[in-house]
Amino acid sequence: MPRVQLPAVTPRRKAWNKGRLIGQKRPLLPKQVWAIRARLELAGYLRDLALFNVAIDSRLRGCDLVKLAVTDLVKEGRVRERVSVIQSKTKKPVQFELTENTRDAVIAWTRSPEMIGCRFIFPSRFHARPHISTRQYGRLVRDWVTSIGLEPSGYGTHSLRRTKAAEIYRKTGNLRAVHLLLGHTKVDSTVRYLGVEPEVALTIAEGIDI
């Protein structure tokens, strides 16, 4: 009896996102920001506290945040109130302010023994790398949100980038201002990035009387 040649069957690979929460990561709420900040302060994690605070204030992408040099933030022993950096993605400058809490955290970190002779504000503990990687930054974010009881799959490095921008938009409704602060090239990108909830939009509209 002749053998029947069956068609080859290619095994289906498991989808990379199966069982994972994907899509835009949520911004942190103000109370969540303060909860993480308090935990880092109590634990005495100077680097993590400085990194967390700078991430919130700067609204920088992770690739730009980890590459910040000491001289970007500190001049003549004092932390700058306003900073300007060139973004890796757009090659355009973006400005951001550093609040008093952040300036205090940065100066405490830069004066620590671990920072002696370091060029980058967030140096890597591995000799082959001059600064922490975006992957390491992502792991730290996961640890921070987990520490206050949040589901880590819903948050990421972009959560910190979006946090202050979302709060500014919620309070002012000024899309153009948020567009400039995030350093987007197109306003459409800002609209998608904010992921404005209908309830937030209605609240803003209720406050406008014409």
Rank of each mutant, 00 (worst) to 15 (best):
R161D: 06
S153V: 09
V145S: 01
I86E: 08
T90Q: 06
R82P: 02
R103I: 01
R119Y: 12
E100Y: 07
T90N: 05
P113L: 03
I22D: 10
A105G: 04
S153T: 11
T172R: 07
I56F: 06
R12L: 15
L180Q: 09
N101K: 10
I121D: 00
R162V: 06
V85F: 02
V4Y: 12
D188T: 15
R111Y: 14
A105M: 00
A69D: 11
T102G: 06
R61W: 11
H184L: 05
L150K: 04
S88M: 15
L180S: 07
R26C: 11
V74K: 01
L140M: 13
Q136G: 11
D104V: 15
P7N: 09
V79N: 00
P113R: 00
G62S: 05
V106I: 15
P198C: 09
A55H: 03
V196H: 03
S153A: 12
R161M: 05
R135M: 12
R26T: 10
S84W: 08
T110N: 08
R20T: 09
G138W: 00
N174W: 04
T146G: 11
I22T: 14
R3M: 13
D188H: 10
L49K: 01
K31A: 14
V196S: 06
L194P: 00
V4A: 12
T71R: 13
P93I: 04
T163M: 00
K186W: 11
L28Q: 02
A43S: 14
D143W: 13
E97P: 04
I56Y: 02
A15K: 14
R37C: 08
Y193C: 10
A38T: 13
G173R: 00
D188M: 13
I36N: 00
S58D: 01
S189T: 15
V74Y: 01
G62Y: 01
R3V: 15
V79M: 08
S84P: 06
T99Q: 12
L46I: 04
R139I: 10
C118Q: 14
A108S: 11
V94R: 03
F126H: 15
R12P: 07
V4G: 07
R192Y: 11
L46R: 08
S124M: 08
D72G: 07
L150Q: 07
V83T: 02
T99R: 12
T102C: 13
P27M: 02
R13Q: 10
D188L: 15
Y155G: 02
E199H: 07
E199Q: 15
F96E: 01
V106F: 05
P130F: 05
A69W: 06
M1W: 09
T10I: 15
Q32A: 09
L180R: 09
E151H: 12
N174H: 10
Y155W: 03
R13N: 07
S189Y: 07
V106P: 02
E100G: 09
R61H: 06
F52I: 05
V66G: 03
L202E: 09
A50W: 02
L42V: 15
E76W: 12
S88H: 15
R176Q: 13
V141L: 06
I116P: 05
H184K: 12
I86K: 10
A35I: 03
L65E: 00
L181A: 09
G156Y: 03
P198H: 08
I107Y: 04
E76N: 14
I86Y: 08
G173L: 02
K25W: 04
S124K: 03
V83Y: 01
K186R: 11
H131V: 05
L150D: 05
T71K: 14
R135T: 14
P93F: 03
